[in-house]
Amino acid sequence: MSAPPPRRLEPSEAGAPLAVLLPFRPPPPAAFAWPRLRLVHLVGIAGLVLVVGGAAHAQASGARLSALEVIWRWLPLLMWGFGFNILMSVLSMALGTAAGLGLGLLQIGENRLLRRVAWAATQFFRNSPWLVLLFFAMFMIPFQFTVFGHTMPLPDWVKAVIGFSLPVMANMSEIVRGAVASLPSGQWEAAESLAFSRRQTMWRIILPQCVKRMLPPWMNLYSLITMATVQASIVGVSEMLTLTSQVHAAEGGRPDLLAPLYGFAMLCFFLYCYPIERFTLYLERRFQLNQ
């Protein structure tokens, strides 16, 4: 062992000589088995159903509809709104992932200047509040584009999608950089010694191995962006949260309906995001075992 090769200390190695601390492991090691309901799930769902139904049921009397009946009556509209949230989340995720992949590759590229610029852009968009970026997109992107003499209007929700894709891009860029940095340097050396060019090494050796590492944080990011899409209601896009308050107004603005209605919105997102979280944890765990 002559030259001190510039190598990162693996967490496991760092902990090895000292028996005081085990390596840091990201959250729970439970096996993936979501058809089986466990106490946690029951508490979670029961808790939400209680806020939706319980709070309101007591107040329901006479001619007034109970909260559950109100939700039932407006269910198609609310579900349409929720579907719109999902649509925005998918589109902004696709857009942000593509842009983030490019930005991330620039961050680890060979060009010094581009590397700096990509790093700065990543940090800037990663550290800005999502809501500020959303405002940024809403106000800074023109409401119509003129391409070859055709004027195309750009609806608000498309601008919102772009606004959400900015933080996705920045976080994706970091995910790419982190995954590439986490590969042992021996992989680069081996590829180099076999006369692979840098580009070939990247695309044939490094990135294929990174896909697996990037999947859990990428899914986590998707879950976060899905939950962030309700912020579009603040800038006037008609999604589930906007429709929820419209439903509330249509029912005469009864204060007792607010908790159940917002509770219902929480339940919808919970049922969508919780399985994603479980699956992410399962993947993380499997990846650790395979290492």
């Binding site: 021996g186 992989q187 050396e189 010694s193 006369a195 050796i205």
Partner: peptide
């Protein structure tokens, strides 16, 4: 460098298989 490395094979302590 690539021409050089086509002439020189190398085996590492940590194997470094892909």
């Amino acid at each position: 460098k690539l021409a050089l490395r086509r002439k020189v094979g190398m085996v590492f302590q940590q194997y470094n298989l892909f």
